[in-house]
Amino acid sequence: MKVSFKLNGSPVELDVPPNEILLDTLRFRLGVRGPKRGCERAECGTCTVLLDGKPVYSCNIFTVQVDGSEVNTIEGIAQKELGKELAESFSREGAVQCGFCTPGFITTSYALVKENPNASELEIKKYLEGNLCRCTGYKKIVEAVKKVISAYRK
């Protein structure tokens, strides 16, 4: 099936079988390796991408569903000012350990800062509920987002 969408700002046109999931299209067909495969069951958040600005699990959506949409992955987000600030804050605050969940966390965080620049600590935690981290215990992740959000508000 013909599918066209905008990936990190650039148009993409593909012919994919209807049963192909977005994560596989990104990783195997397009070589976009930022979104990770942690469970492939919409249970962990490592594959998070933005679909028309909203975070979604790319492991749980058919590629044909994103036809005509805008998809942003960590690769695109990292090019943007806010994305860079988040990445730097995560790195500086010790919010990254193994790093496998990190692209997903930054992707979700990017959307949350855009969505709610007044998010409280509890709201930040709530937005991040769908991203599991097994290394950090979440404290430093929440702190890293808080630092960026308070700067972003100003």
Binding site: G45, L51, N60, L112, G130
Partner: peptide, 9 residues
Amino acid sequence: MASWQIRNV
């Protein structure tokens, strides 16, 4: 319900 990512879809 679920998570932000799922609720968006």
